[in-house]
Structures are given as C-alpha cells and as structure tokens.
C-alpha cells in the first residue's frame, strides 16, 4: 500500500500509461543492486530513488577523488577523501527518506557477487572492469535474475537487458575482456548520465511491466553524432556460463 505522502510524491508518474497505483506499488516493493555508483551507476541510483524503488543495494569501494567530480553526481566536493557509498547514502536519503538502502564499501567480485545478487530482484551493471561484469553475469545467470547491462566510453554508450534463459548473457557476447580496454577512460558526465537514465528506465519497465525492455537487443549510441542503433543479439550455444 502507498502512504498519503507517497501518492503525492509519485502522482505525476502514476499518470503515465500503464503505471497507476499498482505500478507504483510494484516499484515500492522492488529491490535493485547497482554495481558501482560512479558516473553511470550513481545516476541510475538517483533516478531509481526518485521513481520510488523501495530498496537499493549499492556496491562501490573507495573514497571520493577530485577526478570523480565531473560525473559522479551523488558525490560532492566536501566529501573528497571520504567514503563514496556513505556520501551517496546521505545524498539519496536526503532526496528520498523512505528509501531502504544498503551500502557495501566493496566492489563486486567472484567472492561476493552471489551474495549481493541474492538480496535483490534486479541488477544494474555499471562496473568499469570486465572482471566485475563477468562475476555479476555468472551470478545473475545462476540465480535467474534480470540484469541491465550498461556502459559508456568517451561519447559512446551501450545498453542491453539480460534475461537469463531467454537472451544472450554477457559471456555469450564476449567471453573475455577486449584486449584494448583500459581501466581509465575519457568521460563526460552527460554521456554517463544519458546511459544511466536509459538504464534506470529499463529497470522501471522490468518492474512495472510497461513497454518493451531491450532484451535480446543492444542499443548503441554515439553522442558525438547523435547516432543510435538497435542491434540484434543471439545466444551463443557454446557459452560456458549460460549453457
């Protein structure tokens, strides 16, 4: 059930076709894990907190650095040197005090992925390292939970929604990390934020049942030229993870 204040806060989005009070109740009852809360994940968390998702689990190790502050909107200048997840927690709860929030000052790894994924309904993967993404992929496939897979580089973004058993998993597409990938990458906050808002919308669609998720399709975008493509994906019958 929604409380009176919740009805007032979410009134305008409950007017959206297919949402209504039932859709808002589904959002309130849902839980989402976000792997890393940097330029992409932080904005995903902010948008899901705004939409009234009931519980967020955030995983991101380390303290705020000056170089985070061109894109990581949950952080702030006064927080430099302090814990990212604790700063994010304060920002999110100030925005939505009804949010149930669990933060982990650690990145996703093979050691913790299964446990983190087991706590939620849906996962959003925003990690900068393929090792973290592959660990998360194995966990969601094993537990049969959907994962919104989103990423960016420079002016480019990509997004797909993985539905275990139905769509290609991450390892179907790339069983190993691309040789050219580097941990540090060129990034504008607006590019990361664009990808993040699309990812948050995927989560909202998965929870409410509105629209069509990007399942079995890869959205690629080049914001330098405003070129968007839909590409069709297929499962790899020889995939070590999902077959």
């Amino acid at each position: 059930m929604l409380e009176k204040l919740e009805r007032a806060v979410y009134e305008w989005q409950m007017w959206a076709d297919g949402v209504g009070e039932l859709g808002q109740q589904k959002l309130k009852a849902a839980s989402v894990l976000i792997s890393r809360i940097g330029g992409v994940g932080g904005t995903v968390a902010y948008q899901l907190a705004a939409a009234g998702v009931g519980k967020l689990v955030l995983a991101h190790a380390g303290n705020i650095k000056p170089s985070d502050l061109n894109r990581q909107l949950l952080m702030n200048h006064d927080g430099i040197g302090q814990s990212r997840v604790e700063t994010a927690k304060a920002r999110l709860l100030a925005f939505n005090p009804r949010l149930r929030l669990e933060v982990h000052d650690e990145n996703v790894s093979e050691a913790n992925a299964m446990g983190l994924v087991s706590q939620v309904d849906i996962v959003v993967d925003c990690a900068p390292l393929f090792a973290e993404r592959f660990a998360m992929n194995r966990a969601i496939v094993q537990q049969g939970k959907p994962m919104v897979e989103c990423a960016m580089y420079e002016y480019e973004g990509s997004l797909t929604t993985i539905l275990p058993g139905t769509t290609a998993c991450l390892a179907c597409l790339s069983p190993s990390a691309p040789t050219a990938w580097r941990r540090e990458f060129p990034v504008f906050g607006a590019v990361a934020g664009t990808v993040a808002c699309l990812a948050a919308m995927e989560v909202i669609k998965l929870i409410t049942g509105v629209g069509e998720p990007m399942a079995g399709k890869l959205l690629t975008m080049d914001l330098a030229t405003m070129t968007f493509s839909h590409r069709k994906l297929h499962k790899n019958p020889n995939c070590d993870v999902c077959n």
Binding site: S35, G38, F130, C150, A151, M152, Y153, A192, R231, P237
Partner: peptide, 25 residues
C-alpha cells in the same frame, strides 16, 4: 550479431560492423 551456429550470407551492399563491448561506468 553473427554467431557460428547461424548462416553467414552476404549480399551486395551488406554492412559488416566490427566492435567490442565497452565497460565505462
């Protein structure tokens, strides 16, 4: 997406795209 278990048939004017996943977050 081209996969080994599906036929690879080219036509005149076909567009082949080579890319990789990205991982920036």
């Amino acid at each position: 997406l081209v996969t080994k278990d599906r036929p690879f048939v080219l036509h005149d004017g076909a567009e082949l795209t080579l890319t990789t996943l990205i991982s920036g977050g």
